[in-house]
Design a binder for these strands. Structure first.
Lengths: 209, 209
DNA sequence: TAGATTGTTAATCGATTAACAATC
DNA sequence: TAGATTGTTAATCGATTAACAATC
């Protein structure tokens, strides 16, 4: 079965983009799309688009194209967005609070179920629907809500510690916002959002265009 | 001259990482590093590291390695971090406010000099050192501070409009936080931070590990 | 049926890695 | 000088793109 083969990172990274565009098409009432159409809209090569879907067995019909809703739902399933994905946020600073407000109710398949910190002065404060709790309470929250993903929004210096703690409580995915490289841990996946890095790349391009 | 050749995207994206590691080395008082050392620390292949620096003419000494401070400063110059890079933030929602607090005073070479919105109820509010101003004032701010980069943190629906406005006022780089694909504009560089996409990729990996 | 467009293999392209001569 | 490690070219690998037979 095609699913068995390892899907490359490059392909996975394009899936959310397809997903977004297909959602737009659905909202526009378009029910059918060809790889050529999608190419024009996404800027990707039509061969690449077909190749990407082919990794999962292919979702189209020769001579017709792709059914928008069907394709949308297939990608939804692949990305695991048909289930509830609960996340916890470690660190209730600027970014942590912004995330807590951003994922209130299963926004796009993800939902923040807890935000944690250690700073006494902010414990108990309400961020949207959530209350900032002490990290000591995190283990319970993770187990009760079957949480697999933790967003790390603490200062770099404490990132390692926060990650170790999260993994000990059963977390399998780290969404890291600290501008530091976290050491790989077996069976745990790390996805970095290095804002500064991204801004530096942009700065370079602006100055060298 | 080597600088003239087009540097690939992949190389540029690794530069901030080198920069961060070299800063760490400096803080640890380490003055000399080989590509093999850097390889162990960054997880990158030593050949790749040398190849990357070779793109810019090479910064090392045969039989010795690289001088940490020299290399750090060269990368700093390449990334344009030896100058002040002012940015404006369009959209004073959760993310916009978090960014404004994150770049108060030339943090890592970048400085937010203005944050703009249209919502009357929040205009005038202080975010750290900055006051939320109406977007009508943005043009003046961009010219006065020679701003080249705008962070877009408005809802997707208004992203296109915000970008057009920014470009009209002379912006050359768009740091886009709206979960939408912006159409390419000649002479303007776009760098996307698609938080949802990143989280979806993480979710996929967690479920398929 | 004829036309369209996928699924799938093959070719190309670019990025990563290996190798080693140059040289400090 | 001998050892180390870069600069630089060559080989490998993987991702992208092209081509076209299959088939709706």
């Amino acid at each position: 079965m095609k699913y068995e083969r390892k899907i490359s990172e490059a392909v996975i990274k394009r899936l959310p983009r397809y997903y977004r565009f297909l959602e737009d098409l659905m909202n526009m009432g378009i029910s059918r799309v060809s790889s050529k159409d999608l190419s024009v809209r996404t800027g990707l090569n039509p061969s690449q688009i077909r190749q990407d879907f082919y990794c999962f067995g292919g979702f189209g019909l020769q001579g017709y194209g792709y059914d928008v809703e069907f394709l949308f739902n297939e990608i939804k399933k692949i990305l695991g967005l048909d289930a509830i994905n609960n996340i916890v946020i470690i660190g209730a600073g600027n970014i942590g609070q912004a995330l807590a407000k951003y994922f209130p109710q299963q926004k796009k398949g993800f939902k923040a179920v807890g935000i944690f910190d250690v700073k006494p002065s902010i414990l108990g404060a309400k961020i949207g629907e959530l209350e900032i709790q002490h990290v000591d309470k995190m283990g319970d929250c993770i187990r009760e809500n079957n949480v697999k993903i933790a967003a790390i929004t603490v200062p770099s210096l404490y990132a390692r510690e926060a990650v170790d703690m999260a993994i000990k409580q059963g977390i399998k995915g780290i969404w890291n916002f600290a501008p530091t490289e976290l050491k790989e841990v077996p069976d745990v996946v790390i996805e970095n959002i290095h804002l500064i890095d991204s801004l530096m790349v942009l700065g370079y391009k602006v100055n060298n265009n």
